[in-house]
Structures are given as structure tokens and as C-alpha cells.
Simulated scan of single mutants.
Amino acid sequence: MKAETLVAEIARVTGWQGNGKALPDWASVEGELGTPLPTDYKGLLSPVSFGNVP
């Protein structure tokens, strides 16, 4: 199962509706790190915003 699907299922089960913050600018994050991040990692973190946990 993909990370995005798992996050959506967790949100559905818990009733979580997001935090209302903007999505991370992945290009800037990856530029600062000097490496691309895995798509599933970005998919997992995007709904909860960078650095936050639901």
C-alpha cells in the first residue's frame, strides 16, 4: 500500500482533517539537502506539513 493511501486511511479512521498549513516547497528542501527525497516520503509528510505530526 502506498504511503499516501496509508495517510488517507489514518486520517479517515481518526477523523483528522489536516492542519491547514501550506505544503512544503519540496524543490527548496531538496535543494538545501542536495539530494532528491523519495516520492513516498514526500507523500507521507505532505498532508501533515513539514516537520509536524498529526
Rank of each mutant, 00 (worst) to 15 (best):
L6C: 10
N52G: 06
P36G: 02
K21L: 15
A3E: 03
T5G: 06
K21E: 10
Y41K: 03
G15A: 02
S46Q: 10
A11T: 00
E32I: 09
Q17E: 13
W26I: 05
P38R: 13
E4L: 05
V53P: 00
P47V: 08
R12T: 11
P24W: 05
G34N: 00
S46G: 14
S46E: 15
L44E: 11
V7P: 00
G18W: 00
I10Q: 05
E32C: 08
V48C: 12
A27D: 15
A8I: 02
N19M: 06
L33R: 00
V48Q: 09
P36D: 09
R12K: 15
V13A: 11
T14R: 01
G15W: 01
L45M: 15
G31N: 11
A11G: 05
G31R: 07
N19K: 04
S46I: 08
G15V: 08
G34L: 00
W16M: 05
N19Q: 04
P38G: 15
K21I: 13
Y41A: 11
P47M: 01
V29K: 04
S46V: 11
E32R: 14
P54I: 04
V48E: 05
G15C: 02
P54R: 02
T35H: 03
L37Y: 07
V7K: 00
P38M: 14
D40H: 12
E9N: 12
F50V: 07
G31C: 08
T35W: 03
P24E: 12
Q17T: 15
V29S: 08
P54C: 10
G51P: 01
G18A: 08
Y41L: 13
F50Y: 14
M1K: 07
Y41R: 04
A27I: 04
E9W: 06
Q17Y: 01
V13H: 09
E4K: 02
G43S: 12
M1N: 07
Y41W: 14
L45Y: 14
E9H: 07
G20D: 07
T14Q: 01
G31H: 06
W26Q: 06
L45A: 14
G15Q: 04
W16D: 01
P38F: 14
I10D: 03
V48A: 05
V53F: 09
L33P: 00
A27H: 13
F50L: 15
K2M: 07
W16S: 10
V29Q: 06
W26F: 11
T35L: 08
N19V: 10
E30C: 03
N52A: 12
A8N: 06
A22G: 11
I10P: 00
L23E: 15
G34M: 00
D25G: 07
L33W: 04
T5E: 08
L6T: 10
Y41M: 09
A27Q: 12
L44K: 03
P36M: 03
Q17A: 15
Q17R: 14
E32F: 11
G18F: 00
L23P: 05
N52H: 14
Q17M: 10
G51E: 03
P24F: 10
L44I: 08
E4D: 10
P47E: 02
P54H: 06
P38K: 14
V53E: 11
V53R: 04
L6K: 05
G18R: 03
L6F: 14
W16C: 12
P24A: 15
E9D: 12
R12Y: 04
